[in-house]
């Protein structure tokens, strides 16, 4: 099962590292990353494989939300199907 992690907020040092290490702690494998910086707004989307995750989905989402609050970022973890169903026929 794959999920999409999105991170939006002000660009600061170490955003990617902090999200990636949270993934590693949860046994979540990062398969693809795209990021862009518009002026000083940072937007990143990460495709991750959660089939071998060591924690339930809900907890991963909660941990990412806590991380987002700490770093003043908006971080969402969502099942990839929500995007597939909305944008692909």
């Amino acid at each position: 099962m794959r999920a999409v992690i999105t991170v939006i907020g002000k660009d600061t040092v170490g955003i990617l590292a902090s999200v990636a290490s949270e993934c590693a702690n949860a046994g979540v494998n990062v398969t693809e990353v795209t990021q862009s910086i518009l002026q000083d707004l940072f937007a990143m989307s990460m495709m991750v494989d959660i089939s071998k995750a060591t924690i339930p989905f809900r907890e991963l989402a909660d941990r990412m939300q806590d991380l987002g609050e700490k770093r003043n970022l908006k971080i969402h973890v969502m099942h990839e199907d929500i995007f597939n169903s909305m944008h692909r026929i």
């Binding site: 999409v4 999105t6 693809e32 795209t34 989307s45 908006k74 969502m78 995007f83 909305m86 944008h87």
Partner: peptide, 16 residues
């Protein structure tokens, strides 16, 4: 990989 624009569009729909 999903298009970043599509991902952000979905999140904007939900968030805003």
């Amino acid at each position: 990989m999903l298009n970043t624009h599509d991902i952000l569009e979905t999140i904007t729909m939900i968030e805003d």
